[in-house]
Structures are given as C-alpha cells and as structure tokens.
Simulated assay, not measured.
Amino acid sequence: MSQTLRCALRSLCTPLKRDVLKLAPPLSSVLNTRFLYAKATLGLDGFAEQSKQIHQQMENIAGKFREKMTTYSSEDSQNMIFTEDLKNMVYMAESDADVELVVKMTKKFNSQNKELRFGNFVFGPVIMRMFYTHNKADLALECFKAPEFDGIFDQLITYQILLDLLYENGKYQEILDTFEVIKGRQLEGTKYPRNSVVLVMAACYKMNSKESVEYALKFWNELRGAGHFPMRRATTFCAGLALNQGMPEAALEIISNVRNPNYVTIRNIKARALSEIGRLDDVITILKSVISDDRPGEVAHTFNRDVLEAIKAKVLEADNPEISAEFNRLEKLFEKEGHITNETLDQHLCSEIQKPPVMNNRQGNRFNRFQQSDRRPSPGFKRPSYRPGLKDLI
C-alpha cells in the first residue's frame, strides 16, 4: 500500500484492526452500460428538437449555406462569421464534414473582434451537445483544451456534458485529467463543480483499481478539506469503490457524511461494509430497520440481492447460531414482503441521474432555479437556499 493511500485512510478511518481489511469481491463483475446523466438532464432532447426546427427552416438553402460557410471559414477569407451563421450550422450538422466545418467556424468566430459581438448567445453548451450527439469525444476534448477556443467552453454545464461524453466512451483517465484543467479555471469561483465531481468519482469507480482508489480517497480528503460537500451520488461512488478495493472501513467513513442514511445505496453499502469487518449485530439491526420503517401504501425499502448474498456468506463464516437464525428469518420475510431487488448494487450506483441540474448558461435555460415572488416574506421566514447541488441526486 502506498504512502499516499495510507495517509488517506488514516484521515478517513477510525482506529479499527487492520486485519479486517480483507480484499472484498467486486460489487458486480458486469459494467453498467446505461447513461449516467439522462439526455434531458444534459439538454440533449432540447438540442434535438431545435435541430429539427432549424433543418426545416433551412431545408431549401442548406447546400448553398454550407458552401458559403466553408468559404467564409477559410483562413484567407475576409468575411465574418456571425452569431446566427454559427448557431444555424451547429444545429444543421449531420455528417463528420459538418462537424469539422463547425469547428472551423468556431475558431474564426472566436478570433474575430469581440467588440463586434452584441448578442448574448452562449455557444459552449450547444457545441458540446453537438459533439455529444455525434459521439465525438476525442474532438470535443481537443477543442476544449485548444487555446483557439479560449472562453467558448467555460460554462459549468459544458463541463458536465463533456465529462459525461467521456464517461460514455469509457475514457475514465481523460475525465480525471480534464478535471484538473477545470479546477484550474475556477469558473464562477467554483473549483469543484458538483456534477463534475460526480463524474470524476464515477470514473474512479469504473476504473476500479488501486490507482483509482488512491486518487478517489485523496480527492475526497481534498474536497472535505475545502469545505465541499459532495452530492450523494459522488459519495456512493467513492464508498462503493473503497468497498470493491477491500477497504470497508473507508467506505463506512465516507458514507457517514451523508445526512440521510435511509437511501437505498447508503443502506446497502453500510450493511455490506459492516459485514466485511465482522460487525454482524449491526448488520442485523440495519436489516430490521427496513421492516420497522414500512408504511402502508409506500414503496418497500429494499436490499440488493447480491448484497444479501455477500452478507449471508459472512454470516456462515461466523458460525454464530443466533445470528444465523435471525438472518435466515429476515431473509425469508424480505422475500415474502418484497424487500429484495434483483438489481445489483453496481447497477443501482450507476443508474441514470434524471433530475435536471441548474443550467449555467443564459441561453436555452428552461430550468428555473426558483420562482420569484412579489409577496414579502413574513417575519422570521428564511428563504431556502437554491445554490446548485445542495440537494443530492440519488
């Protein structure tokens, strides 16, 4: 174990016996292939709809328009690329040649005298959605880093779209490298954009290696040291990775930061981690809690079947008749009352995030943070905080 990892674990974990850090089997050997952020969350549905409208409007002149833009975007052309030109071409892009044309137009547009731009259209998220639609992960990353595009892609939602595109293409190391660039830019005074942090932890979880857990634990301590409270999904990715890498103590310390311990992923990780360190009495208590929390008409609290199987293996190893009898009783009760899901913990951790984030670009923002009220609040009323990311995503 490296010195970095030892330091990270020392700051995360309470003093427990080191001999309990036995290598745990992976949560699942099958990688989940569903999207992490749903298309609507990234604005891709809206992009597709707008693209359809632009295609209809430009149908009769599309060919001539492309020819004109190809001429205008050449280096020796004195013609300018206007906001409306670039916007139309982004939405019209159908082929690789069209995407390359958009890249050339964007370079020229960004190099033109900024004093001549009077519109407030923000291109970063829209162009990144175009890259996403055409699955151009490498080109998107290249443009993001290129100095010719300085300022174009500096929006928090653009960071999220780019990192999600890299995630869907399995470019996990590139996510970590790109996040270092994002941290350095500190857009809007934000060094750790919440949705980007989720994707960084997701990348570490997918990598599932000694190096990735070292990075994740070091990054976790960096976040906590800066007073940053990660979203619940980032927390469960980090804890799930620690559990996969045989560090149940670290997993328990990480999930202790979640304010509400009743979420299904938290409950499963905690029960599995406690079983790994031999605290089966505490596991039984957690199992019993889902029964006491049952409410008529509400969805039953569940455990993942693979988690219960892992716990059962630990119960058999312990050879404690009392614990075994109680576990068997609860397992039968869970089967009868629908407290077991066949979805694996890995699948649950990697399920789609549906809730729309707060869009950080001014154009195309259909998700209002809150409704302004003309009424003056009553004395003593405290307006809730609507800062992005305060409410965790499941």
Rank of each mutant, 00 (worst) to 15 (best):
E309D: 02
A310L: 06
A310V: 03
K312R: 15
K314Q: 13
V315G: 15
L316C: 05
L316H: 08
L316E: 04
L316R: 01
E317K: 14
E317A: 02
E317P: 10
A318V: 06
A318S: 12
D319N: 06
D319E: 03
N320I: 00
N320K: 10
E322L: 00
E322A: 02
I323G: 09
S324Y: 02
S324D: 07
A325K: 15
E326I: 06
E326V: 12
F327K: 06
R329D: 10
L330I: 12
E331P: 09
E331Y: 10
K332V: 11
L333Q: 07
L333T: 05
F334W: 09
F334Q: 10
F334D: 04
F334R: 01
F334C: 03
F334S: 12
E335V: 04
K336G: 04
E337A: 03
E337T: 15
G338K: 08
I340G: 05
I340P: 09
T341K: 06
N342R: 02
N342P: 09
N342T: 11
N342V: 10
T344V: 12
Q347D: 08
Q347R: 06
H348Q: 08
L349S: 01
C350K: 00
S351R: 12
S351A: 11
E352R: 04
E352H: 05
E352C: 02
I353G: 11
I353M: 15
I353W: 07
Q354W: 08
Q354V: 11
K355E: 11
K355G: 01
P357V: 04
V358W: 03
V358Y: 07
M359S: 14
M359W: 04
M359E: 14
N360M: 15
N360V: 06
N361R: 09
R362H: 14
R362F: 15
Q363G: 01
G364M: 02
G364P: 01
N365Q: 05
R366M: 03
R366D: 07
R366H: 14
F367D: 15
N368P: 15
N368Y: 00
R369Q: 04
R369L: 13
R369I: 04
R369W: 01
F370E: 08
F370G: 07
F370W: 13
Q371Y: 13
Q371M: 05
Q372D: 13
S373P: 14
S373N: 10
S373G: 04
S373I: 07
D374H: 12
